[in-house]
Design a protein around this nucleic acid. Sequence first.
DNA 1: CACATCGCTAATCGATGGGT
DNA 2: ACCCATCGATTAGCGATGTG
Length: 269
Amino acid sequence: MEGGKIKETIPGITYSCYHNVNKDGEQFVPEHTLSFQIDGSLILDDGQREYPSAKGSFRFIRRNQLLKFMKYPPVDGQFKSISIYLDQQSLKDFSLLHGIQAGEATHNPAVWDLGKSHSLEIYIQSLLAYGEAGYLGDIEFVKVKINEGILLLLQSYPGLKDVLFDFSDPFKIDLEAFMMQNYHFNVNLDRFAYLTGRSLATFKRDFSKIFHSPPRKWLQQKRLEEAYYLLTKKGKSSSDIYLDLGFEDLTHFSHAFKKYYGYSPKNIQ
DNA sequence: CACATCGCTAATCGATGGGT
DNA sequence: ACCCATCGATTAGCGATGTG
């Protein structure tokens, strides 16, 4: 990777399974991901809109973006999903081997709802079977299955080639718009810099120019102001919102809030 | 029980100066 | 115009403790 800032993830296939609790959080999506919902549902949120998924559906999730997710197990059951990470190296190898290249870059959605696909269903069945037999711990084996996944995806959804084989790093995008959309994500400045197509130094310089405030300070103010709004106008409680606003720790949230407003979140009139 | 507060440390930040 | 290294300052995050 040219930028070199973000660690490459190793090729992988992940099987998720949760008991009765609803689980939510947020994450940076480093690699294109093919995901199949075995049971329960998963709602993704890119900050602009929500992408719900239902049992038995396939989705393709674009790399290099920030997503919040909410996992809902079915009634009396478990949340189950399987995700295949289509890492850049595998895609590059595939591209060379088959001589396929991306067409012109277009603006693509964050999440593609792929619906049903017979061939992919067979693929998933084989993955689950191999998984149970313990084959998915073998990296060479996983690589083969990732290639198989790419092949099947392209057969069913040829349009995906423009996304899959676009190996470019993020280009210099509108910093103001990006920050307004993503300020509530709890990621470090390196990540913000990379996603807006800048080095950390340039990111900070551009940031100060636009917002007249250092990034960290602006982010915290923005989140606290949003918190204030949610607490006063929406009647939410601290514990409802602190995670959504990018705070990882409730005690720290309280502390920061009091420092900024002079009184703790609970004592709002 | 839910939330607030305190005290601490490691991680991260912001600013600066120098280099290509 | 952009990037890197450095350093002092600030912040995040955690457990312990307080409070109603």
